[in-house]
């Protein structure tokens, strides 16, 4: 079951507008300065979805192709990269998180019925599992970055 292009574009533009508003309210942005940056993020995301739907490329997840496209478009020397980076750099990262987690929050209600049926024991296990993933990866990174002489 695939989302239609009309829907994807609608979602990306709605999100970009909310990111813009978030950036203005929370991080001193303005429409004049940040409108193009917010729309560029939506365009890159749409480009990634397009790539992810091509034969062969569709073996890897959409998230991967959006990231790769964004990486390529930001490498110094790639035509347009300098402009894209300059236009998007004032969109605060935190401004991109708030709208997305607002939607995540609004979807939580549908999990509550399922949650009531679970044993309480799943809660401490869940917290331990997510803690483990973060802490162990950070620890490995800390050790390896030392060995590689990054800091």
């Amino acid at each position: 079951m695939k989302d239609t292009w009309a829907d994807i574009i609608f979602i990306l533009i709605t999100t970009a507008v909310l990111v813009l508003i978030s950036n203005i309210v929370g991080y001193g942005g303005s429409i004049q300065r940040d409108l193009i940056g917010a729309l560029l993020l939506a365009v890159i995301a749409a480009g990634g979805v397009f790539l992810a739907r091509l034969p062969l490329l569709n073996k890897l997840p959409i998230v991967f192709w959006v990231s790769v496209l964004a990486v390529v478009l930001s490498v110094p020397g790639v035509p347009g990269a300098e402009w894209i980076v300059a236009k998007t750099k004032d969109i605060n990262f935190l401004a991109t998180t708030t709208p997305i987690l607002a939607y995540a929050g609004l979807a939580l209600g549908k999990e509550i019925e399922g949650f009531k049926k679970l044993s309480w024991r799943i809660v401490p296990i869940c917290l331990a599992v997510s803690t483990g993933s973060f802490v162990c990866a950070t620890l490995m990174a800390e050790i390896m970055l030392h060995l590689e002489g990054i800091f």
Partner: peptide, 30 residues
């Protein structure tokens, strides 16, 4: 919210997330 509303918000989220992924990706190149 109706459960249809929530379903919609849940479907909206992963695509909206791509905006954040684009933002993160653009930080990698430089």
């Amino acid at each position: 919210l109706s459960s249809a509303n929530m379903e919609r918000a849940g479907k909206f989220m992963p695509i909206a997330m791509l905006i954040l992924m684009a933002k993160l990706g653009l930080g990698i190149g430089p």
